[in-house]
């Protein structure tokens, strides 16, 4: 129920947007709760975009994890 799926904003029109869930699944969703631009990823839940997905943050998170994990491998172990 709280499942929310990231989707790419492909078209914007007023409070509505067309988003692409990948593999050609398109849907109109309400974007009045987020500041999204075409090309942004948004998290979609029950027909509403509830948050924008920070792409840079996503990549940073991955990089950071790798770093944390790598750094902690050595000292003391």
């Amino acid at each position: 129920m709280c499942l929310a799926i990231p989707a790419l904003v492909t078209r914007l029109e007023g409070g509505k947007a067309q988003v692409d869930f990948g593999e050609g699944v398109l849907r109109d969703v309400n974007v009045s709760l987020v500041d999204a631009k075409v090309g942004d990823y948004v998290l979609v839940h029950a027909g509403y975009a509830i948050q924008t997905v920070d792409k840079e943050d996503a990549l940073e998170t991955l990089a950071l994890w790798k770093e944390i994990l790598a750094a902690e491998k050595d000292p003391g172990s």
């Binding site: 129920m1 709280c2 929310a4 309400n30 009045s32 709760l33 839940h45 029950a46 027909g47 509403y48 509830i50």
Partner: peptide
């Protein structure tokens, strides 16, 4: 209108 805070905003709007 069932759901936690994830869903409630859509009802609110």
């Amino acid at each position: 209108a069932v759901g936690f805070e994830t869903t409630a905003p859509s009802t609110a709007v």
